[in-house]
Computed example of a mutant assay.
Amino acid sequence: MKTVEVLSKKKEVRLHLFLWVILAYINYVHLDFKAPYFIRFTDFSLFNNTSVIVFISTFYFHYLCVMPRVMRNFNGKTAFLGWIASYLIFTGIRAFLEQFLTVWIWDKQNYYEGTPAWFYMIDNFFYSLFSIGIATITYIVIYLIRSLQLNQIIQQDKNETELRFLKSQINPHFVFNTLNNIYYLVYQKSEQALPAIDKMSQLMRYMTYETSENSIELQKEINYIKDFIDLEKMRIAGDVYLKLDIQISNPNLLIPPLLLLPFIENGFKHGVLTDAAHPLTIKISQIDNTLELYTQNKCNNYNKDETSGVGLSNIQKRLALQFANKHSLIIKEEENIFTCKLTIKL
């Protein structure tokens, strides 16, 4: 699965720099096709520059101090009080810069002497809306991006946990069936009992050390399937009729471990293996990034049990999690012939 990353502080800073570049362009740059490079820098007046300082100061007060509190426990009262606080910050900084500091240094002020306080407050109310509004929108956009990414991470963790659980279900299910097979061979005092135990140890080694990874080479999975088939054939008295056709172009292609086994295991567990007219058919093919598995067997109606669906239902859930829109699975039973066809885009 692709790992999801939460928007980092470094990327957040980059978004802010991008915002400031756009606002600086709007404030200071104008298109002029007669000027060099078709742009003209304008309006570097004193009070235009002080307005930029007021804008940035209010923006970050609202962004860093007000919005985190508003979004943490959102209600109308919190949002209103936060907006009032930012408005007062805007008005106070602007009054200090343009009615005091500029007078003291350059003997200039933005508002005429004697301007009524009510006019000053109303005028700054409208000017502050832009700074506070931009800060609010920026914070909400970044907040939503992080929330969506966190939701993706939570869902990804949930899926990975479920996949680990489903994979852990396969191992006991397989071990239970195989031990039953070996028990049968030992009970019959078959010469195949010791080779079966040795083959079982190889399979257990594979399951212990290889399947802990999220993916393995296709060839390893096929080797595992071949060992499994050899082990299953040992327990069957008489001739086993099996057609195995494997054609792969890239043995190093990575696939999830134990992905194909349940279909093959199902054929051995519930199929008739001694009917020459209806052999167990297993075909595995891989071309480019497409992997196909085809199995067909005659159903053994006397070998049904309550756990018959564990393997296939398990693998269907795994496919839904790992290859949601990249696989097709056709399972059908017609005239006592059970057929599975799985196609995966890796």
Score class of each variant (00 low, 15 high):
K11H: 07
L17A: 14
L19Q: 09
W20V: 12
N27W: 13
F33S: 06
T50Y: 07
V52N: 02
I56Q: 03
I56A: 09
V66Q: 07
V70R: 02
R72V: 00
F80R: 10
F80Y: 10
L81V: 09
I84D: 00
G92L: 10
F96H: 00
I105L: 03
G114P: 03
N124A: 00
N124F: 01
F130A: 10
I132P: 04
I137Q: 02
I137L: 14
Y143S: 08
L144G: 07
R146W: 00
L148Y: 08
Q152D: 12
Q155K: 14
D157F: 11
N159I: 12
E162G: 08
F165P: 01
S168A: 14
Q169A: 11
N171Q: 14
F174L: 12
F176C: 00
T178S: 04
T178H: 00
Q192Y: 15
Q192G: 11
E210I: 05
S212K: 12
L218Q: 02
Q219Y: 06
E221S: 02
Y224V: 06
K226H: 14
R235P: 01
I236K: 06
I236V: 13
G238F: 13
V240T: 15
V240L: 04
L242W: 05
D245Q: 03
P257E: 04
P257H: 04
G267A: 11
G267E: 01
D275T: 09
A277N: 15
H278F: 15
H278R: 14
H278N: 15
K283P: 00
K283M: 01
Q286I: 03
E292M: 12
T295H: 08
N297T: 09
K298E: 02
N301Q: 15
Y302D: 13
T307W: 13
L312P: 04
N314K: 05
N314S: 05
L321K: 13
A324I: 15
N325S: 15
N325H: 15
K332T: 14
E334N: 07
N336A: 08
